[in-house]
Structures are given as C-alpha cells and as structure tokens.
C-alpha cells in the first residue's frame, strides 16, 4: 500500500446513547485539513451507499478524526456495527465550507440536537479563539439522550441543557434556553445544528429578534463534492448545493419546507434497503 492510500481504521468506539456512537477514525490526511463546520463522506463497506457525516473533533498530530454516528437506517448501521480494529472502506474529505467565524460584540450561541451536538464543538472552539463569549445549548427529549455535554463544556464559556420532559436542565426546547440567555445578555449570532424542526424554530425566533442565524443543512447527498446536485437547497430564492456552498447557510433565507420534502425522497427505498440488510444479517 502506497504512501497515500489510507486505512480508515476504527481506533476507539464509545456508545453515547442508544444507537448513537462516538468513533475515532484513523485518517491522517483529512485530520490535517479539516475545519470547523466541514464534513466527510463515508462508505462503510465495499458496496455501501455514500453518506455524509459531520466531524466533531480531530487530532492533527495523531492523525485521527472524531465522528458521532446515529444509526438511522442501513448505511449508518453498517457504520455503527464496526468495532475497534475494523476499517471503513472509504472516507473522503474534508468537504463543504468552514463555519462562519467572526468577532461579535454580543454572545455566540451554538445549539445542538442529536449528532449536531458534536458538530458544533469545533465551531465553538473557533468562535472562542476569535475572542467571543460562546454559549452552548444541548437539547434532547430526555436526560439519557443528551450527548457530548462534557466536551461541549470544554469548548464553551457556559452550557445550557434542555429536555422536553424536564428530566434535567430547562424543560422544553432549545429555543427556551435562547430566551433565557437573551434575558441575561445580548446575543449576536446563533448556530443551530440538529433536526430540521429545531432549526426552523431557531431560525424563526432569531428572525423576530434580529439575530444572525446559521443552520447546517442535512440534505441528501451522493458525491458531496458539487458534482451531482442531489443536495440542492433553496437559500434566498437561489438554488445552492448544500455539500459545496454549505452545509452552513443563513437560517433566515432557507426554504426548510423544500429541504424536508427532499429529505423524504427515498423513504420507501430506505425501508427496503434496511430490510434487505437485516435479513442478510440474520442469515
């Protein structure tokens, strides 16, 4: 194997909550280049689909990247059943643009839901390094589903937790935390990464309050390099490719309805693919 052919080996694996795992993957060249807000495409196995995953950390010297993978369907499950010592067939990146980093006069609030909590950590570090006060907000249905809280605390000045059932932190949604924060201090910029309904709620709220809002769009992707147009999203009335122009966009300009519709493009096929896979596993 030549100098550039990388072996994308699983170095560590840790369960964060049901069906969701943290992985360290050996990928020295990607680790050297990756920036906050960017993502990679993986194929767990030889015939797998290509799927995009955010990066929640990296170590440039030791040559690994960190991922959070939630098994949503077939391909993410192919990934999450990998164990330490196994390898991912392909890992490509870094893809997309770096998150928007600037110096603000008010606080920056970064909100994560699900795997999105991992994705905001590198951006939190960069914003802090740029001299900002950075507040993290993690939301989940219940306490046991909150993930990466300690890591986020390391990267932020302060972290709020919200749970729908009130088992810990503020009862309700991440928007409730944003309300609380705004009562105490000026907020200049918000980044939300998570399920689309959460991003919609944050975009609506910040629009009313006149706060800058970034969202990371999880459109369906094939190549991840701007070649196919599968990831088309409408932002400010213009067609953009989420993989190339994004994944972060101005939340006030995103056509979320279209995004949600397009995310459902293959639901029937996804079920069939998963059934074929579990069928094969059982055999």
């Amino acid at each position: 194997m030549g100098k550039y052919n990388q072996d994308f080996k699983v170095l560590t694996k840790r369960e964060l909550c049901a069906n969701t795992y943290h992985f360290k993957i050996q990928a020295p060249l990607i680790a050297k280049k990756i920036l906050a807000g960017q993502f990679i495409m993986i194929r767990p196995n030889e015939n797998s689909e290509r799927i995009p995953l955010s990066i929640c950390g990296w170590n440039r010297e030791e040559g690994y990247i960190e991922l959070i993978i939630m098994s949503a369907g077939r391909t993410s499950t192919e990934a999450t059943i990998k164990e330490v010592g196994d390898s991912f067939k392909d890992v490509v990146g870094p893809l997309g643009q770096r998150s928007h980093i600037a110096k603000y006069d008010g606080a920056c609030v970064l909100m994560g839901g699900g795997y999105g909590t991992g994705a905001i950590i590198p951006t939190a570090r960069d914003l802090k390094e740029a001299g900002n006060r950075v507040i993290g907000v993690v939301g989940a249905r219940s306490e046991n589903l909150l993930l990466m809280v300690d890591e986020l605390k390391d990267a932020c000045d302060e972290v709020y937790l919200t749970t729908n059932d009130g088992s810990i932190g503020i009862e309700g949604f991440v928007t409730h935390a944003l309300e609380e924060i705004q009562k105490k201090e000026k907020v200049s910029s918000v980044l939300a990464v998570g399920p689309v309904p959460m991003m919609i709620a944050v975009a609506n709220m910040t629009k009313e309050d006149g706060i800058e809002c970034w969202v990371s769009l999880n459109a369906i992707m094939v190549d991840g390099t701007g070649m196919c147009g599968a990831c088309r999203v409408t932002v400010g009335g213009k067609t953009k490719f989420a993989c190339f122009h994004g994944p972060d966009f101005n939340g006030h300009e995103v056509d979320f309805k279209e995004l949600m519709t397009r995310q459902k493009m293959f639901v029937d096929q996804e079920k069939i693919a998963m059934e074929a896979f579990t069928g094969a596993l059982e055999k």
Binding site: N47, E49, V222, G229, F266, A276
Partner: peptide, 22 residues
Amino acid sequence: NEYLTRIYLMHANYFPEHPTPI
C-alpha cells in the same frame, strides 16, 4: 449527473443488493 452516478457508480439498478436508491 445524479441520475447516472446513482446507477453507474453506485449501482442503484441493482438495488437493494446495492443500497443506493433511485
């Protein structure tokens, strides 16, 4: 590009053995 890539790079014509959908 998307249509042909799904099929000829990702083999969506042999779905679900190849899980990329079309």
